[in-house]
């Protein structure tokens, strides 16, 4: 059952993970390789996550855009960005993420190295690629990292959320 939240929940939420840029209040990173898997699981359990993998071009604009998608008035309060940008953390999480991708899209063969971002709730709901042309699915041809695609990713995650029993709580 989803946990009921109070009005001040988000303001008082403990910051388990560091926030790389102070102004980007919804963008988090992990605390190092040692606790990466536990922290990753805990983060996914708690949030509607857009997982960003690796370093990429125009990251300042895109991270700012991603943060805005989580703070705009139409955003679900649980929306967060988890940016895994350290190589060792990526290696640590690789198997876990590959398993999640297989579970989310069993019909697709998705190469971990070609994944730039994943919307998770905590199941995989949407994948954004490093090079979408490498995806065998022609529907993925536009799924390259951008604010447009990140908004679509969050849409997919929210649509896939299981309904709460009372539908009154968020």
């Amino acid at each position: 059952m989803a946990k009921a939240l109070t009005k001040n929940h988000f303001e008082n939420m403990p910051t388990t993970f560091p926030i790389p840029i102070p102004s980007l209040t919804r963008v988090h990173t992990l605390n190092g390789m040692e606790t990466a898997i536990e922290d990753f699981d805990a983060f996914l359990e708690e949030h509607i996550t857009l997982l960003l993998l690796g370093r990429f071009e125009d990251s300042t604009i895109l991270l700012e855009g991603a943060n805005k998608l989580c703070t705009q008035e139409t955003a679900h309060p649980k929306q967060r960005i988890l940016w895994v940008n350290k190589l060792e953390e990526l290696f640590t999480l690789k198997t876990k993420i590959e398993d999640a991708l297989k579970e989310g899209f069993p019909e697709k063969e998705i190469t971990f190295e070609n994944v730039r971002a994943i919307a998770m709730m905590p199941k995989v709901a949407y994948v954004i690629y490093v090079d979408p042309s490498l995806s065998p699915d022609p529907k993925d041809k536009r799924k390259k990292i951008s604010i447009f695609q990140m908004q679509r990713a969050f849409n997919a995650a929210i649509k896939a959320l299981p309904p709460t029993p009372t539908e009154e709580e968020i």
Binding site: T6, K7, I158, K159, L161, P163, E169, I170
Partner: peptide
């Protein structure tokens, strides 16, 4: 006050 918004509205 976002607590007034139900999940079905977000969906």
């Amino acid at each position: 006050d976002k607590t007034k918004i139900a999940l079905r509205d977000y969906k």
